[in-house]
Amino acid sequence: MTKLSMTVNGKAVSGEVEGRTLLVQFLRETLHLTGTHVGCDTSQCGACTVHIDGKAVKSCSIFAADAAGANVTTIEGMANADGSLSVIQQAFQDCHGLQCGFCTPGMVMTSAALLADNPHPTEAEVRHGLEGNICRCTGYHNIVKAVLTASGQTVAAE
């Protein structure tokens, strides 16, 4: 076991990890931040997406030790300071961008990174940008609508 420190959602944290401990395990099992989900065991679903130094990364595909010293943001760090939902989270709710909600934390994290990079994406850019996140409920249309809405763009009614 080795001792490890990083910043998670603005707070300095530390804990003991094995070499093989994945970042998602450290977040969920050591820090009890269970909003970050594990949806697959094959690095494909994106439910575990977090930000490392502002960039979207699958926390199941990086060892915790490799994120030592990094600045990590999880879904628990996304709400506004007063506890209200962030623009992106609110847009997911308003646009019915989730059904079961399992993929939603990852979707929100990837969308936030996408909009930080490209504040006014086209629909095609949103779909391309969400290629690493799998949803098995919604068929993606309302997720894409939520991201476009969060970007301040008017989305035509169906």
């Binding site: 990086i62 996408l114 290629e131």
Partner: peptide, 9 residues
């Protein structure tokens, strides 16, 4: 290559 998360790592 892959998807945005893969390209970041």
């Amino acid at each position: 290559i892959g998807d945005p998360q893969v390209r970041n790592r």
